[in-house]
């Protein structure tokens, strides 16, 4: 059965009616899982494409899809929502590990592209200016990006006691994976805002 195809359940339809409204409402309440049995993925030209198995001819076409992690701070592999280019959900992958090696790699690549985040390993300078804070940091790749936060307290999201995600004034994201692993000077600087 193709993704999104609602299993005929006469009893359920009987209970809620068989009109368009009911059908759409029922569809919206169902979780549709994407599995190797009903879809395959391919990474091509820096984009992710999905091909549905089963269903009509049109479903067999490769379609550009996007991924959205349902719990981005907890798992980058589990409960991954697959969206079309209109950002409508096609279905959910329970764990990308259920797909074979190549497809897994394709999914991982797309997740890495979407959830790009710089990991801060050192805070070189943090100063306040005109109601903003200006940060000069070193990331895990050795780059030394500089960014500003409009509302410092509101821009730092505490994921766990140790882990923080910072969103700068431009919308760029930075992560401190473990605040305890920062050097004492860096820790002292950020401690004021968390």
């Amino acid at each position: 059965m193709a993704i999104g195809e609602i299993e005929k359940n006469e009893e359920e339809y009987g209970r809620y009616g068989t009109g368009l409204f009911e059908r759409q409402a029922l569809e919206a309440t169902r979780v549709r899982y994407i599995t190797p049995e009903n879809a395959s993925f391919e990474d091509r030209d820096g984009c992710l494409f999905m091909c549905e198995k089963g269903g009509g001819e049109s479903a067999k076409e490769q379609k550009r899809v996007m991924l959205h992690l349902l719990f981005p701070y907890s798992s980058r592999r589990e409960l991954v929502s697959v969206l079309n280019t209109e950002q409508d959900e096609i279905g959910i992958i329970s764990d990308i590990g259920i797909f074979d090696g190549e497809q897994q790699k394709a999914l991982e690549k797309e997740i890495a592209r979407k959830y790009f985040i710089r990991k801060i390993v050192k805070i070189n300078e943090l100063k306040e200016k005109n109601g903003m804070t200006i940060w000069k940091v070193t990331d895990a790749d050795g780059n030394r990006p500089e960014f500003s936060l409009k509302d410092t307290y509101g821009s730092i999201f505490r994921v766990t006691d140790e882990r923080f995600v910072i969103t700068d004034a431009d919308g760029n994201r930075f992560e401190i994976e473990d605040i305890n692993k920062l050097d004492a000077k860096s820790r002292k600087k950020i401690e004021l805002y968390i």
């Binding site: 091509r44 030209d45 820096g46 984009c47 494409f49 490769q62 550009r64 280019t85 592209r113 979407k114 959830y115 790009f116 985040i117 969103t167 919308g171 760029n172 994201r173």
Partner: peptide, 21 residues
């Protein structure tokens, strides 16, 4: 636009193609 990145996408006969990010 993605979460914190943007990409230049070219629409081709074969489908979308990421040119730069």
């Amino acid at each position: 636009e993605m979460l914190s990145t943007a990409r230049i996408i070219a629409e081709t006969e074969r489908g979308d193609m990421a040119v730069a990010a």
